[in-house]
Computed example of a mutant assay.
Amino acid sequence: MGYKTLLVHLDDSARREARLALALDLAGRFDAHLIGLYLPMPHPRTPAAGSAPALEQRREQAQAAFLDAGARASCMVEWRAPQPGDTATAVLHARHADLLVLGQRERDDLAIDLSSDFLTDLLMTAARPAIVVPHSGSFPTVAQNILISWDGGREAARAASDALPLLRRANCVSIEVVAARHGTKRMRAEEEAADAAAWLDLHDVSASFHESARDPGVRTGTALLSRASDLHADLIVAGAYAHSRIHERVLGSVTRNLLETMTVPVLMSH
């Protein structure tokens, strides 16, 4: 079991190279076909930047850089620059890939997203796991030391299952459960963590597990990032959006917290 087709989102942002480097690394590990999906921002900052010659020049530069990087990495690559370049188009292409490589939204860089909800819309509707790359930092290694966020829910189970090819190749896998300090919920969390470790063991993945007490003053996502730092994890595996979109936007969520404050790549599934 592995990933046969990967898709990386390319645009005109400064972080395009970081996403591409990570995608090429994964494609090399799994001998996978890598699709470069070029969808730049639809509304440039200045009219001159949005002229037809300027758009064509940026597209040609992005294509040349992608093909050159693929050749240097000896990877099978395919360039796509579909029209229209919107979220619906991205979803259609994403559904024909096994794993997506996307970028965290950077508020100061308008080129990184097609719309304010491009990343979350793709996570919610593509029905494919995605590795989201932070908008800052370098990641020379990824998926060697993996932390799984586990709450026993549907999304967590889906994410862990989608991450199995990476989990099997990792040097270290840890399961983290953030639960109540006492009572039946804490006991249930401990049982769920042990059950998850046993399930992974049947898939040839040896994983340790740990339970953290929920602190009312600390967001769960923040606690997970802190735990990842303590363990020197280079990838977090987490389910995406356990509740309705409206609920998430009003109350916040582990998913949104991770997407906004991530310090290492995060693999998410919905």
Rank of each mutant, 00 (worst) to 15 (best):
G2K: 11
A189F: 02
A52I: 09
A65M: 07
C172L: 08
D195L: 11
R181Q: 11
L37Q: 01
S244Y: 09
C75Y: 10
S138H: 13
H33A: 07
L10M: 03
H33K: 12
A23C: 08
T220R: 15
H93E: 09
A228D: 02
A157N: 06
D234L: 01
G183K: 14
L166V: 03
E192C: 07
L22T: 11
G70E: 05
A180Y: 00
V8P: 00
C172D: 14
S74D: 09
G252F: 06
Q104T: 03
A18Y: 10
Y241D: 12
A130G: 13
R168C: 03
C75H: 03
V237M: 05
S161W: 05
P140E: 01
R169A: 11
L166D: 12
L258R: 03
P42R: 06
M262S: 14
A228W: 02
T184K: 12
E60A: 15
L123W: 02
A94Q: 05
G137Y: 07
L164D: 03
L102K: 03
P40Y: 09
A194P: 00
A94C: 11
R249F: 07
P44H: 00
S138W: 00
R181Y: 06
S244Q: 11
A156P: 07
F30D: 10
M268K: 04
I246Y: 09
L24E: 04
H247I: 01
P47V: 06
R245Q: 03
R158W: 06
D117C: 07
D12I: 12
L166W: 04
A179Q: 07
R188E: 10
A157I: 08
D86T: 07
Y241M: 15
A71T: 10
G252N: 04
A73W: 10
M187I: 14
P84L: 09
Y241L: 14
M268G: 09
L259A: 10
A65N: 03
A159M: 05
R245K: 14
G252R: 12
G70V: 11
V237R: 00
S13F: 13
E191M: 13
A189R: 01
